[in-house]
Structures are given as structure tokens and as C-alpha cells.
């Protein structure tokens, strides 16, 4: 079985931890995130009859973290960048994060998750706004950690990209 480290990045309160909770059976207490700044969970995903173990680093905080704790990103095979559909600023932060990340890690598979799809009425982000990502061949998913929609899809899409590499 293959193993890959993936990092979950994004601004505060975009719902990263809720997304992971949707996706995995929790390994560590969430207090790790507040103390160490990272919480790690694992899950085995099956894609195209192939099992792959994802070691998911749920990294706390803003875009600064990419600079502050850049070592957290080392060895990562993929990234999940998360933004909050109700807060355009989080998409800007996601853009910055991605750019800084890309500087350090060449062509690492990435997916963008616009979370809180359950509050789509209050969304202030349009497809136009995510064009910067789609132009970079980065898949964009509208997810709801609350309802679980598209969460599996986002993760499996990233996983498939990891396998291709």
C-alpha cells in the first residue's frame, strides 16, 4: 500500500477541521492543533482498485503558517487548500498560500475546496473569483462539511492525482 502525506491549508474558520472530521476517523485529540498547530489523521482511500493511505496534516492558521511552519509542508505529496464561500478574504488568503507553497514545492498536486456550500445563499464568491485556480489546472470543489457533500470527491480527486505521479 502506498502512503502519501497531504496538507490541509486555509484561513481560520474556513472549516478545515470539520472537513477532516467528515473524512477520517479521528486519531488525535483536537487540542493538538491548538498546542502544536497541527493535527494528523490517516485514512486509507481506494481509487481505481488501488489502496492508498493518506496521512492528513491539518495545519492550523492563516497564510502566515506557510512561512512560519514551512517545515510542516515538507515531504507533502498533495495539498488541499480551503476557503470559506461566505468570506472572499479567505479565497485571497488561499491564493497567497498556494503561491507561497508553489514557490517551495514544485508542481505538487493541489485541490481547492470552497467550503460552507450549505450556506450557498450567503456566498460572496463566484466562479469568476476562482478562475486564478482553474487557470492553473487546479480542481475546485464546493463542499459542505456540515452535509458532507463533495468532501469524499475532493479527497479522492486529489488521491487520484497522487497516484498518477
Amino acid at each position: 500500500m502506498q502512503v502519501r502525506k497531504v496538507c490541509l491549508l486555509g484561513n481560520f474558520y474556513v472549516g478545515k477541521t470539520s472537513l477532516v472530521r467528515r473524512f477520517v476517523h479521528a486519531q488525535f485529540d483536537e487540542k493538538y492543533q491548538t498546542t502544536v498547530g497541527v493535527k494528523i489523521d490517516t485514512r486509507v482511500v481506494e481509487v481505481d482498485d488501488q489502496a492508498i493511505k493518506l496521512v492528513i496534516w491539518d495545519i492550523q492558521g492563516s497564510e502566515d503558517v506557510v512561512l512560519e511552519h514551512s517545515s510542516y509542508l515538507k515531504g507533502a505529496a498533495g495539498f488541499l487548500v480551503v476557503a470559506d464561500g461566505t468570506r472572499p478574504a479567505t479565497l485571497e488568503a488561499a491564493d497567497q498560500i498556494y503561491r507561497k507553497m508553489a514557490e517551495q514545492n514544485n508542481r505538487v498536486p493541489t485541490v481547492l475546496l470552497i467550503n460552507k456550500a450549505d450556506l450557498e445563499d450567503e456566498w460572496r464568491i463566484s466562479d469568476q473569483d476562482t478562475e486564478t485556480f482553474t487557470s492553473r489546472q487546479i480542481p475546485v470543489f464546493h463542499t459542505s462539511a456540515l452535509k458532507g457533500s463533495n468532501v469524499e470527491l475532493a479527497f479522492t480527486t486529489l488521491t487520484r492525482q497522487l497516484l498518477d505521479k
Binding site: V3, Q27, V36, V38, I40, T42, V55, W57, S71
Partner: peptide, 18 residues
């Protein structure tokens, strides 16, 4: 899970360094 543990250990290692 040993991978979770080892990753956490690596994270802590990085955290301390940072």
C-alpha cells in the same frame, strides 16, 4: 496508527524547531 504517530512526531519536531 504508526504513520499518524510518526507524522505527529515529525510535526512536533518541526514545531519545536520553528
Amino acid at each position: 496508527d504508526e504513520d499518524a504517530v510518526s507524522s505527529m512526531l515529525t510535526a512536533i519536531q518541526s514545531f519545536i524547531q520553528d
